[in-house]
Amino acid sequence: MSMNTFPIIRVVTKLLIPYILLFALYVQFHGDYGPGGGFQAGVILAAALTLYGLVFGLEAAKRVAPPKLMQRLMALGVLIYAGTGVATMLMGGNFLDYNHLTHDVWPQVLPSGQHLGIFLVELGVGVTVTAVMTMIFYTFAGRQHIT
C-alpha cells in the first residue's frame, strides 16, 4: 500500500532519496573529520529506506532491500567489527589494537593502522545499524492489524 493520494510527496521523495543516500555515505566516511560516523550513517540509510517504504509501500522497499539480505547484514556488521579485533589479535596485538594493522592499504586516506581500524569498525557499525533499523521497520510495518 503506497501513498497514492499524495503525488507531490511521491515526487519529492523520489527526488530526495539519492541525495539522502549520498548524505549517508558522506556521514559514514567523513565521521573522522566531523560529527558523524557509522551509527549515524546507518540510521540515515535506514531512514532513507524507511521513507521509501512509507511512500512507495512496504513491498517496494522490500524489493530494494530484501529482508533476507538485511537479516544477514545485521550479523555481518557485528562480525566485521569483532573480526577487526580478532585480526589485530592474529597480528600479534591486543584485541582492537589497531596499531598492529598494516596501514599501507590506502596511505593517503588511511595513513595509519588506527585510521584503518576506525574505518573498518565504523563500517561494521554502519552495516549493522542500517540492517537492524530497516529490519525493525519491516517487522513492524509488516505486522497485520487486528481490529
Binding site: 565521521g31 573522522d32 573529520y33 566531523g34 560529527p35 560516523g37 582492537l96 589497531y98 595513513p111 595509519s112 588506527q114 585510521h115 581500524g117 576506525i118 569498525v121 565504523e122
Partner: peptide, 14 residues
Amino acid sequence: MHGLPNVVTAVLAS
C-alpha cells in the same frame, strides 16, 4: 591517532 580530527570518533572507535 596520527591526526584524526574528531576526538569523539577516536575515543568511540579506538
